[in-house]
Amino acid sequence: MNAIIEMTDVRKTYATGALEVAALRGVSLRIAQGEYVAVAGPSGSGKSTLMHIIGCLDVPTSGEYVLAGGDVTTLPEAHLADIRNRRIGFVFQQFNLLPSLSACRNVELPLAYAGVTPSERRRRAVEALTRVGLADRLAHRPGELSGGQQQRVAVARALVTDPALILADEPTGNLDSAASADVLALFDELHAVGRTIVLITHEVDVARRAQRSVLIRDGRLAA
């Protein structure tokens, strides 16, 4: 299997004033295409930092990161934006939907940045929302949806561009067990059709649904 993510000795150090915080201390990680990997670990261990680097939202202080065969460690921001747009779908703990836009418009957003025509955008957004079971909530704004529904809108937004990689940072952290089950079922479906999924969680039973679990502790991967 081809590797979609190849990280070699990635370090990330935050400098806050005089204080230096080493959030990642030499992470080497290989994730193959189509894998479903859970990243677990205690609070403050560097899970989110790792996900931000995997998602090209942040750049490592040192080390090498090859995404889908291309080195992304030194790319300019405009290029990274394009990679995030075409290859990666994000699902955040806080949903991060734009409150002024309808569910459908929220899902259309990444397509707008990809330059897709409005009618095609609309068609694909409706399709994605149908897939997450929200075909009857197209015109609702996030404030008019339950937490579980909002997170399903976020999942729809993550998959609407057909990305190779879906990154989820504690997607069930703000949801009750029923809503969590809905969202995790969606991830199972996505995995079944060949998407690579990296899911961050500290819940053991969530991690267990993945093919493989990696444990991170103090900025290092534990065996």
């Binding site: 405009a78 394009d82 995030r84 994000f90 940045y113």
Partner: peptide
């Protein structure tokens, strides 16, 4: 600022 961050995560370039 969060909206800007989100738009960037979804693929907005600095010039957009």
């Amino acid at each position: 600022i969060r909206e800007i961050g989100l738009r960037k995560a979804l693929g907005a370039t600095p010039s957009a």
